[in-house]
Simulated assay, not measured.
Amino acid sequence: MSKRVGGVLAARHGWCGPDEVIRFAVPCTPSGIRFDVDGLSWDGRSGSAGKGIERAFSAVEGLVNASSDYDDRLPPPKVVCFGPGPQSQVMGFRPVTEDADVRFTWVLTSHRLALLAEVPEPPEPEQEKEESSGSFWQKARKFGAGVRDFSRDVADILQDKKLGAYPANEPVPVAPVTSLGEVTVQQVRAIGRATRKLPRSYASRKVFALRVELADGSGLDVISAAEENIVRLEAMAFGRQ
């Protein structure tokens, strides 16, 4: 797992303008983004090929799920994109990657809404060889471990444990980021609280959401099982916290 700092610090350091204020930032991995869009599968694939890939991806999620405490079911996704079809405005944010470990951050600022991705570090030669020769199930287990490590990293940063591990008086390495899609705030039609019902494979089917609606009626729901988190996120979105 990379020792570079990502998330809000990476967005602030390598992407935001000097007068741009970050309202909120939501970190996630590819498995944390799902799609409620006509013509697409839940993981954003289209057509019959997408359904086959979705079944394979479900097997990977099953391995992650087996190591969790969610009553043999999945934790809720971080974000659900919604819209009437694949041409919806929100689909401009759909990430295209085969790397299950890549780290994304959804960012709302005073100027724009964006999906950022950390630029991966070049793999070590031995690591690259191991990854290319690993079986599907070895990669699936690695994916599950990566999700757990990512959660621990986020918790450590919030508690200042991760930053405390860096040498004093030396710059903290910050991950470079690239924008996968963004719109200006003028293209955001509404922001407000909502509820959403997830598929039956999830432990919490009824969840709370902060809904960000775009100009064409499509948008994204930032998901939480706790309503108080959404109340706070809404306040942050409007600069009240």
Rank of each mutant, 00 (worst) to 15 (best):
P123V: 03
V21P: 07
A237G: 10
S68A: 12
A194S: 13
R34A: 06
E121V: 05
D99Y: 08
P77D: 04
E234R: 12
W42S: 00
M236N: 13
V37Q: 00
S179D: 12
T178F: 10
Y70S: 13
E228R: 11
V96H: 07
A237C: 11
R200H: 12
F104N: 03
I230F: 04
A114R: 15
N169W: 15
G181Y: 14
T178K: 14
P76G: 10
C28L: 14
F35L: 02
E118A: 13
L214H: 02
S67G: 12
R112L: 04
L220K: 02
I230A: 12
H111V: 02
G32E: 05
R189F: 08
S151R: 15
R4P: 10
P75T: 08
F238V: 06
G14A: 14
S135V: 05
P77V: 02
E130Q: 13
P125S: 04
L210F: 07
A140H: 00
R193W: 02
E227K: 06
D216E: 08
A25Q: 08
Q89M: 13
K197I: 06
T29G: 13
P122W: 07
K162G: 03
S48M: 02
D149R: 14
R141S: 14
G39W: 00
D71P: 04
N229F: 05
V172T: 12
F35Q: 01
D36Y: 01
V26L: 09
G181H: 13
K3L: 08
Q127K: 10
R193A: 15
V90L: 00
V26Y: 05
V183A: 04
A203I: 03
R112P: 01
G192K: 02
K197T: 13
R141N: 11
R45C: 03
N229W: 03
L163W: 11
R232H: 14
L158C: 07
K162I: 04
V231R: 06
K162A: 13
R211Q: 15
P95T: 09
A155K: 13
V207S: 10
K3W: 13
T195F: 02
P125G: 03
D156L: 12
P171W: 14
S179R: 15
R45W: 07
A226D: 12
S201G: 07
V119Q: 08
V90P: 01
A165V: 06
K129H: 09
A190P: 07
K78Y: 02
C16Q: 11
Y70V: 05
K51F: 03
T109P: 09
Q138N: 08
A209Q: 03
L115G: 00
A209Y: 00
T105P: 07
S68C: 08
V207R: 03
P18Y: 02
A209R: 00
A11W: 11
S204Q: 10
T97W: 04
S110G: 09
R141P: 00
P120K: 02
A49V: 11
E227F: 07
T109E: 09
Y166L: 06
P125C: 04
E170Q: 13
S48A: 09
G44S: 04
D160C: 04
E126W: 12
A215C: 08
G146H: 12
A59D: 06
E182D: 06
F150L: 04
D71G: 10
L233S: 11
P167V: 08
V8M: 13
V231N: 14
K206V: 06
I223K: 06
V107G: 01
V147Q: 14
S48L: 04
A155Q: 13
V172D: 06
V102A: 10
M236A: 14
Q89G: 01
